[in-house]
Design a protein around this nucleic acid. Sequence first.
DNA 1: GGACATAAGCTAACGCCCGTAAGTTTAGGA
DNA 2: TCCTAAACTTACGGGCGTTAGCTTATGTCC
Lengths: 212, 212
Amino acid sequence: MVTAVTNTEPRRRNRRGEGGKLRDEIIAAALALLDEGGDERAVTLRSVARKAGIAAPSIYPHFADQPSIMLAVVQQEMDALTTVLREAGDNAGPDARARLFAVCNAYLDFAKLHPQRYRIMFGGLWTPSVDVTSITDADLESLGVEAFTLLVDVLGACVEEGIAHGSDDLFGDAVALWLGLHGLAHQRAVVRKMPGPADVGDRLITALAHLK
Amino acid sequence: MVTAVTNTEPRRRNRRGEGGKLRDEIIAAALALLDEGGDERAVTLRSVARKAGIAAPSIYPHFADQPSIMLAVVQQEMDALTTVLREAGDNAGPDARARLFAVCNAYLDFAKLHPQRYRIMFGGLWTPSVDVTSITDADLESLGVEAFTLLVDVLGACVEEGIAHGSDDLFGDAVALWLGLHGLAHQRAVVRKMPGPADVGDRLITALAHLK
DNA sequence: GGACATAAGCTAACGCCCGTAAGTTTAGGA
DNA sequence: TCCTAAACTTACGGGCGTTAGCTTATGTCC
């Protein structure tokens, strides 16, 4: 267990007007703890403060409570995921089928590369209960929409090009596709080793996108 | 928050030779806490003891530590799930397609009915880390196999009857099907309300089982 | 039917980490 | 110089897991 970072140099105080920088450092510290510890329970208010090299109460000017830190981490990583997916789609060229696979595989790769992050993003554990006033329902509902929209788009392109058997409900089809991806991504993020064939991802995509 | 059960009647001690009964009561208490609290973090060694109406140290003769309690709960619920799936299949009659849908929907219903239980069964959070000596890898790997075998069987029956396009890899197909079910089940167990069409479950089953 | 061995469970206590409140220090900039 | 943003120190109360040792009821055997 490597908890003691203990910067010998205590930490340079931010300049006036740059106090907000600490906010990002706190998020980064929480993310680092998550990646190392492999468990969201390792991310406590105090452990984050230790990791960031600050005193625990110094967090309060930036975050109302620990769940708020988690929300910030999740929001940041959702944006990162969106960027990854967008870039994967853009780099895949014009072919709709290739773009679909690129986006879906980028999604799966993200989960494989950052299992702990994926778990807090979609595992639904960091919301302690209904009674956390610092986090609104709107915060939660708006979380994945941008990334999901990307998926809807690439799937829609496949339908339009006649590559995929689209039903009349593109949104529903995209939900089903995402659920399949999520099932695999989540399971990989949870267990040490997934049984099953190596190409199970491609199988899911092919089946759920109704590719011809 | 209703934590105080506080049996006014403190609790009748078990008769000689029936000390093992407490083990089941502890599991039941943990399960109750899980269902009520909606969060596995509510299931601590002490809270379980309170719920069961015993002193905290009285757990130790029955369980090595808190993760062991969780493992027992998960094992019990896996058995319960297996039973549910088996009964659903048996009650569905001889038609292979009907049996497949019955088993799959029973799976989804279980998750919908007991979201918290589903989360600890498949959410992978209750294993604190690699260093829990009281739980072996064999414990973890053997967990879902029986229920999964049921799924393999009903899917295989569909292939044999020519209802489904089976590949040469039945196991792999079953894994893919389960991953889709799991994605939906897990998501339902995590978020308050799932967007998407109501029949998304049937869509997943139809697509992933390659039904004709 | 009373002694007594022992299974079943309890009380007390230790040390740890947690979240958070109150008041204080320090350094950047006008 | 001195204001004040930025961050610190100290401290409180509480929950946790776990250890050590004690109590009490139950079934047995004389």
